[in-house]
């Protein structure tokens, strides 16, 4: 049986959803695989939505908005751009292919373009193959990766960075100093790395208490780096020492609740 990808699309009401409408009005055919969710603005797309969708077995996710400059809500799409950029960096650290997520600009008059993009993406996903998270037995490692990514995307640090990115780059920081995109990207990349690893650690020590040595083996990271993360996580109340075996502390997760 040929593989039929399951694709979910998050489309903005004013441009891309209307573009999809026009494709229909113009009777332009495209593969049936996509299921469209209507939002008012592509800016509404929280990276967590995309990760949740992927974690539940979507083979591909499309996010579509208005062309830059055309956003019905002025700049929502520019925020989307930055969020998806961050999201892709995050996914790149998991075992899932970042190409399964695609951001495109489609205007209300681009029915043909909408159909083309859906066709192209569907074929791309067909070639990529089913998501490792589909079906009765999703790949447990990648699933864990994705859940860690979801937690990371839902965390304060990355969200505040992405949220403030445009303002900082356009208008400078609170001291009136210029912040360049490269500078910002460096900070963002470090934050993504750090928070993702921390969330992975969290998920791991939630299952069973583990030592720094064991964690560094499983994560393929330097033990010193892992220890630094543990220190931060302890301070944040994410982990605590469960017990000590010989001279080795074992860490367990604390329920991080509200």
């Amino acid at each position: 049986m040929t593989f039929e990808p399951r694709i979910v699309g998050f489309l903005c009401n004013w441009c891309s959803y209307a573009g999809a409408d026009l494709a229909g009005v113009s009777r332009i055919s495209y593969p049936t695989n996509i299921r469209i969710i209507r939002l008012m603005c592509s800016g509404r797309v929280d990276p967590v939505f995309v990760l949740e969708t992927l974690a539940n077995g979507a083979d591909g996710v499309m996010v579509m908005g208005c062309h830059p400059g055309d956003c019905h809500y002025v700049e929502g799409n520019l925020q989307t751009e930055r969020k998806i950029k961050m999201l892709k960096k995050l996914i790149a650290r998991t075992g899932l292919e970042p190409e399964r997520v695609r951001l495109e600009w489609v205007s209300a008059s681009e029915g043909g373009r909408f159909a083309e993009l859906v066709k192209e993406f569907t074929n791309q996903i067909k070639a990529l193959g089913p998501s490792p998270l589909v079906g009765e037995k999703p790949d447990p490692n990648i699933l864990e990766d994705l859940l860690a990514a979801k937690a990371t995307a839902g965390d304060f640090r990355l969200r505040v960075l992405v949220g403030k990115e445009k303002g900082m780059i356009d208008d400078g920081n609170v001291y009136g100093e210029e912040v360049s995109q490269e500078e910002f990207d460096k900070t963002m990349d470090e934050a993504i790395d750090a928070e993702y690893v921390r969330n992975k650690i969290y998920l791991m020590v939630r299952k069973e208490p583990l030592s720094v040595k064991e964690l560094s083996k499983r994560l393929d990271l330097d033990p010193q780096a892992v220890l630094r993360h543990m220190v931060v996580m302890r301070r944040r109340g994410m982990v605590t020492v469960d017990r000590i075996e010989g001279t080795t502390p074992l860490y367990a997760a604390l329920e991080v609740g509200r």
Partner: peptide, 15 residues
């Protein structure tokens, strides 16, 4: 098709 100088899609803003 589009409007100057913003290059807005005309029917998109008109509809």
């Amino acid at each position: 098709d589009k409007t100057f100088p913003t290059m807005d899609c005309s029917i998109c803003i008109l509809a």
